[in-house]
């Protein structure tokens, strides 16, 4: 095989035909308030971890909605579980419980 000096990339778009929302559905059943999120970002703005890492609960929730599990794993590891996000959420989403449920789901064999 010749060495062409370049490689062909896989597309980086979000593919809703292939992404499965397994974790989202797991969380949704136990904590339906995840569905109420309007992605305003107040949780991320106040997040202790977001000051020092890429953590953003808004983003985590979005990624879960789109079935992008790999990205979720690396982000949620940064959470300090302080609960400040819960105080500011205008839709009363149980943010802290969502993080705990994500951790739980990620440990399961399906994910």
């Amino acid at each position: 095989m010749p060495n062409f000096g370049f490689s062909i990339h896989s597309p980086t778009h979000i593919d809703l035909d292939k992404n499965y929302r397994t974790i989202f559905n797991y969380v949704k059943v136990k904590e339906p308030s995840i569905q109420k999120c309007i992605f305003c970002g107040s949780c991320s703005a106040t997040c202790t971890a977001s000051n020092y890492s890429a953590m953003s609960l808004r983003k985590v929730n979005l990624l879960l909605h789109r079935g992008m599990v790999q990205e979720v794993r690396s982000l949620t590891e940064q959470c300090l579980l302080c609960g400040k996000c819960y105080l500011v959420c205008p839709r009363n989403v149980n943010t802290r419980r969502i993080i705990l449920l994500i951790h739980e789901a990620l440990k399961m064999p399906l994910s």
Partner: peptide, 14 residues
């Protein structure tokens, strides 16, 4: 630019 040719052929492949 040789190193960028992957961009071209990724489009072709798509």
């Amino acid at each position: 630019i040789k190193a960028n040719r992957g961009y071209t052929f990724s489009s072709v492949k798509k």
